[in-house]
């Protein structure tokens, strides 16, 4: 039992100060992003089928899952899913984004890599209707058990 000062006096070494890109060796390309403006250090845009690979790479590098966010873009006829990761040791933030078709949104589940994604994905399913294939229990989490509507879709009328 002890209380230690963290290693860097003001926190993590910002990746922008590092000479080389710490995630450059990954097969999925992560671009550096202006953290001060956007709030993430690295971002990658992937196809839906590559989501599991991206999550596995993040897990390998020591990231933990922050959130799984769904966004509805009816004007593009697409839905976007953003996976946020944070690194408990280094403090880096990454985002992995993917877009799926709006009429049949389907993306593989990452629940077997990050068990914490179980609830995040359930929530994204019940709010948007995005089907996470391989998820063990896509039942409503926050909505009533018999809910058959997806409230966060843009075409859901708030009466």
């Amino acid at each position: 039992m002890d209380i230690n000062k963290p290693n860097a006096s003001q926190g993590v070494v910002s990746p922008s100060l590092l000479a080389e890109h710490p995630l450059a060796h990954l097969v999925i390309p992560f671009e550096k992003v202006d953290y001060a403006r956007r709030g993430v250090h690295f971002e990658a845009r992937v196809e839906p089928a590559q989501v599991v690979l991206a999550a596995a790479l993040m897990e390998q590098e020591g990231f933990a899952l922050d959130a799984v966010t769904g966004v509805d873009w009816p004007q593009d006829n697409q839905m976007e899913i953003v996976y946020d990761f944070f690194h408990p040791m280094m403090g880096w933030r990454t985002a992995v984004r993917t877009r799926v078709r709006r009429d049949l949104p389907e993306v593989p589940s990452i629940e077997h890599i990050y068990p914490g994604a179980n609830w995040h994905e359930r929530e994204a399913w019940e709010f948007f209707g995005i089907h996470f294939s391989g998820h063990p229990q896509l039942t409503p989490l926050l909505l009533p058990d018999d809910a058959d509507y997806h409230p966060l879709r843009k075409d859901f009328a708030v009466a």
């Binding site: 003001q10 926190g11 993590v12 944070f86 408990p88 280094m90 403090g91 990050y114 068990p115 914490g116």
Partner: peptide, 24 residues
């Protein structure tokens, strides 16, 4: 790590992660 638990739960397990220091 698997579940993304943070705050005193994570700090009570030995990981000194605090957003005030990691993302100041």
């Amino acid at each position: 790590h698997k579940y993304g638990a943070t705050g005193p739960v994570m700090r009570g397990s030995g990981i000194a992660y605090d957003v005030r220091r990691m993302e100041p």
